[in-house]
């Protein structure tokens, strides 16, 4: 049987913002949303070998061989000019990793880790790999105790979650907006599947955290916040709800000039949610 591989945009060996404790984070390439507020737009597309990024690379780290980009990490200075040059929001610096590759890194760094988080892009687009990796972690005695978590936009259907959940300890799920039209405007997709994923994951005891992006003038409106409060109350008022502040860092397109969330905006939304009875609201440490 062929072991599935993943297209990985980036690997972070230390993260304290992607789940409990210190986590190794894999950002998988490719996303089924097209969020206007995305701060990592280069993780959306898949390279088609057009070669437009090659002239942007001043150190010669990128070449085209047999119609595919070849990336030489040793020559890369990390300037990210190639990402800006890509016409399809892809990343020429991606690498293919096998389950074995990831296990090797995890074993090497086991002493420093509480777990692994798969993020993206949208990790669940590569659900087959995620399930294979998490299963391998759970079945490896040297990796026992590592928690396996997913950052997700929630677009995965129930059949997809059914394949992942036996090996997944928790999911941190983004709700981009409660109003379906607003959600479509922000992400290009309807939110019915997102909300259904939240309910499904909650019932399965795997909803580690809901995340809500506060975009001033859009998702901080009373109607949005009230709908969010109602949705969470219907699940569990003790559910952890993280309010993320919209920032323009990395954002391309019109949203790059939208106003950002400041502390006052976030605190106003948090207060409104608290008044509605939600009792586990997390806000950013840094503004």
């Amino acid at each position: 049987m062929n072991s599935p591989t993943a297209t990985v945009s980036r690997l972070l060996p230390f993260s304290c913002v992607d789940g409990p404790g210190n986590r190794l984070v894999l950002f998988l390439q490719g996303c089924n949303f097209a969020c206007v507020t995305c701060h990592n737009p280069h993780t959306r597309g898949h390279c088609n070998g057009c070669g437009d990024c090659i002239p942007a690379c001043t150190t010669g780290a990128l070449t085209l061989e047999d119609g595919a980009i070849v990336f030489d990490a040793a020559r890369c200075t990390g300037c990210d000019d190639c990402l800006a040059a890509c016409p399809i929001s892809a990343n020429p610096m991606v690498r293919e990793m096998t389950v074995g590759d990831v296990l090797y890194i995890l074993r090497d760094r086991r002493a420093f880790l509480d777990g692994i988080t798969l993020s993206g892009g949208e990790a669940t687009v590569q659900a087959k790999f995620v399930a294979a990796l998490f299963r391998a972690i759970k079945e490896d005695p040297s990796l026992s105790g590592l928690s396996c978590m997913i950052d997700s936009n929630g677009y995965l259907a129930g059949t997809g979650w059914a394949r992942l959940l036996p090996w997944t300890d928790g999911v941190m799920l983004d709700i981009k907006a409660m109003d379906p039209d607003t959600h479509r405007r922000l992400t290009g997709k309807d939110n019915a599947r997102v909300l259904e994923s939240a309910r499904l994951l909650y019932r399965a005891g795997r909803l580690a955290e809901l995340r809500f992006l506060v975009v001033p003038g859009i998702t901080d409106a009373e109607r949005e916040v009230a709908a969010l409060a109602e949705f969470v109350r219907a699940l569990d008022t003790r559910l952890r709800l993280r309010l993320n502040a919209f920032r323009t860092h990395g954002v391309t397109g019109p949203a790059a000039s939208w106003p950002t969330s400041d502390r006052a905006t976030i605190e106003r939304v948090a207060d409104r949610l608290s008044q509605a009875g939600l009792c586990n609201i997390a806000t950013a440490v840094v503004f």
């Binding site: 304290c16 404790g21 210190n22 986590r23 420093f112 880790l113 440490v285």
Partner: peptide
């Protein structure tokens, strides 16, 4: 500074 919201990360790093 984000570690303030997730102090276990620092604990694990120290232990490691």
């Amino acid at each position: 500074e984000t570690v303030k919201a997730n102090p276990r990360a620092l604990f694990t790093l120290a232990k490691g």
